[in-house]
Amino acid sequence: MEIKPPIPVIPPPDWEEVKDLQEWVKYRQERPEGDQVSDAVAGLWDRLEHFPGGWLAVTSSSKLFNWARKSSMWPVTFGLACCAIEMMATFASRFDVERFGMVPWASPRHADLMIVSGTVTIKMAPMLKRIYDQMADPKWCISMGSCANSGGPFRHGYHVVKGVDRVVPVDVYVPGCPPTPESLMFGILKLHEKVAEFHQTGQRSAPGAPPD
């Protein structure tokens, strides 16, 4: 009689042992603490908190400010690679992002959002960091495409940053190679949801957290 070997039990993957995930946790850029709430809004909060009836006033004003922020979010035109073609298609008239109040603006001083569209090479990373630092606070960042998310197909090359979140803090990751304009617009709308909750919670990314 033939004795069958036991069926090997494949253990479920332990995600903490994945090397890429460990690298991601190690090298990811976090937002600094002071970056969570802009100074103007914090000052307004302090002024109105001691005012009688101030709670209602602050809540309404924050909603007003967040509505204004998300309704006129200007991305800096910063195209790096082939994802920039899809980004341009998103900005163009077929997928019109101007109906969301987004105007691609050629100056980082006036922009609120940076869409990192494409492969970030090691030589390009300091310039990307400088452009991000030149943007006025509050500012957001969308990582668009596999290359910007994790290095993508060039991850094991010698010249590519393995994810743009090693350089600047990222709010929304849009997967795809390249993402379609629909994907990018979905990411932009997700970012709008985050912006709408911006300084009520004092945190950028707190899904499900109660306001205040």
Partner: peptide
């Protein structure tokens, strides 16, 4: 870049070695 170390297309170049700050 000017501060690059090593010759990256050689076979003995360690590609996956993380070099600070962005590599």
């Amino acid at each position: 870049p000017e501060d690059w170390e090593g010759y990256p297309l050689r076979k003995d170049y360690a590609v996956d070695m993380p070099h600070p700050p962005y590599r």
